[in-house]
């Protein structure tokens, strides 16, 4: 069994496997060479993504890499869904950082890296002033490239409103994206989002302008470091 190695000086820690696949795809597509992404995990569960609850353990683990192998890891960006309130999401992440017992600097504002060795920054998806999730962002990116799917999916969502009226926005966004993905993969309409994003035949376009703001943040990240 191989152990995880740190290959890039900047690392994105995100909630799920799909998020990590999205960021890694974006970095390759946009030529952002200093970053790699992983999902947050808990101790002893190194094959399973743990969402926000894995952030503390993952940060602790990365702290060891920084302590034992100086220069290997310079900064960590924690990327989480904005959910219904980006500020609340930021607050939750700060609690996770504090739970490392002051081993790592706690950012005072979003986007801005705090401290050194490693610097820590937080970004929320779709963006720091926008509630939502990765799924909503990805669906948005398909509006032009998969325009033929938009009306049928909207119609389907209206037609099923009696069942989804109490669903969260996140769940509704997942349903829309799931419909779009299912319509794109003849061989396996049930492909998971993570699998789609990791696949070389991914039909999502990382070059879409929907992702420009996020991509720019990572492209310019080095200049934000003190």
């Amino acid at each position: 069994m191989g152990n995880a190695t740190i290959n890039k000086p900047f690392r994105v820690v995100c909630e799920g496997r799909a998020d990590a696949a999205f960021f890694n795809g974006l970095f390759i597509s946009r030529g952002i060479l200093d970053f790699e992404a992983e999902c947050a995990k808990t101790n002893g569960e190194n094959k399973k993504c743990a969402g926000k609850s894995g952030i503390t353990d993952t940060l602790l683990a990365l702290k060891t890499i920084v302590d034992l192998r100086p220069g290997v890891l310079k900064a960590i960006v924690i990327a989480v869904d904005s959910d219904s309130d980006p500020e609340e999401a930021f607050k939750t992440v700060k609690e996770s950082i504090r739970a490392t017992k002051a081993l790592l600097p706690v950012p005072r504002e979003m986007l801005k890296p705090e401290g050194n060795d490693p610097a820590i920054a937080v970004v929320t998806i779709p963006w720091i002033d926008t509630p939502g999730h990765l799924d909503a962002l990805l669906f948005e990116s398909m509006r032009i490239s998969h325009s033929d799917l938009m009306k049928p999916i909207d119609d389907f969502c209206h037609a099923t409103e009696h069942r989804t009226v109490n669903w969260s926005d996140g769940s509704k966004a997942k349903m829309k994206l799931r419909c779009a993905i299912a319509a794109c993969y003849k061989d396996d309409p049930g492909k998971s989002l993570a699998f789609v994003l990791e696949s070389s035949a991914c039909q999502l376009d990382f070059g879409d302008s929907t992702f420009d703001r996020i991509a720019k943040y990572f492209t310019d990240f080095n200049s934000r470091l003190s």
Partner: peptide, 18 residues
């Protein structure tokens, strides 16, 4: 170089190459 218990434990149990 030295890494303290809680973070060293996390790195090992998450299979980072330490």
């Amino acid at each position: 170089r030295i890494s303290r218990g809680p973070s060293a434990k996390a790195a090992i149990l998450q299979h980072f190459e330490v």
